[in-house]
Nucleic acid binder design. Structure first.
Length: 252
DNA sequence: AACTAGTACAACCGCTCCTGC
DNA sequence: GGCAGGAGCGGTTGTACTAGT
């Protein structure tokens, strides 16, 4: 992809714009020998003329091992919708429930799929239905073709880290709040509306990856009705913004 | 075939939070 | 407790690609 608009250097002299394969290689070498973190020292130690921020972003969103490339599956889409309804734009929190997906990827996906303006919900619903069927086929094909994906997502219990265990918590909100006490003040944006979905579609403790996938697969049918609700939220927000009323609105 | 709108993706920016001193 | 530097997060932008007209 050619991107000429970001070429050049920053005021601090850092290179900006698209990364070259050589830069990627240097960054991978640096991280594999020094580990993640200490991004500010990357430029000094690795020979990269990039800011620490830029290096971290490139690593987290593109170079880090275990990242999934390719389409968001219907199951992942369902999870994104549900968790966004719970937490709003907490992309990094949502990303913790989607192994191999980055907050940036989820954020981009949400913006392109659910923040569309100007056309009628019915049009979107038709598009989404077509797309859902296509993605479902692709997902099933992926599962059949690459069973190792399952293995990487649901490792043996003895190797499961705290973060990975969270995926199978019956109540994701509680899981995240337990794990990130500093976020205790976070208020779910639409808890009431999603509560019934939440209770029905989050398998209990000890559930396997397959259980989660199965539950979310079942959820895709009721979600047909959720699309309309999401568009209503958008409309509601626009009305709220237009009237300058900040009280009690949605945070989408 | 040409044009346009929508989509996907990569990257930057500014702000907030966290941590060490 | 206050401050500074680094890390992380969310919002936004820029460009290429694709599908529809």
């Amino acid at each position: 992809m050619m991107m000429t608009g970001w070429g050049g250097v920053s005021e601090q002299g850092w290179r900006k714009g698209p990364w070259t394969p050589e830069e990627d290689k240097l960054l991978v070498q640096y991280v594999s020998s020094h580990g993640e973190g200490r991004w500010s020292s990357v430029s000094r130690c690795s020979g990269l003329n990039r800011s620490g921020k830029s290096c971290r972003l490139r690593w987290v969103n593109y170079l880090r091992p275990g990242l999934k490339r390719g389409n968001i599956t219907p199951q992942e889409e369902g999870i994104i919708i549900e968790l966004h309804a719970l937490w709003g734009n907490k992309w990094s929190t949502i990303a913790r429930y989607l192994p191999g997906r980055t907050d940036n990827e989820i954020k981009n996906y949400w913006r392109t799929h659910f923040k569309k303006r100007g056309s009628k919900p019915s049009d979107h619903q038709k598009q989404d239905k077509k797309k859902f069927n296509r993605q479902k086929d692709q997902f099933q094909e992926q599962i059949q073709r690459a069973p190792e994906i399952n293995a990487s997502v649901s490792p043996p219990q003895s190797d499961v880290t705290t973060d990975q265990k969270m995926i199978f918590e019956p109540n994701p909100q509680a899981a995240v709040l337990n794990h990130h006490p500093q976020q205790q003040t976070t208020t779910p944006s639409s808890t009431v509306q999603v509560e019934s979905i939440n209770n029905q579609y989050f398998p209990g403790p000890g559930a396997t990856y397959d259980d989660v996938v199965s539950a979310w697969s079942d959820m895709m049918i009721p979600l047909d009705g959720l699309w309309g609700w999401l568009w209503d939220i958008d409309d509601q927000n626009e009305k709220t913004a237009a009237s300058g009323n900040n009280g009690g609105g949605f945070v989408f």
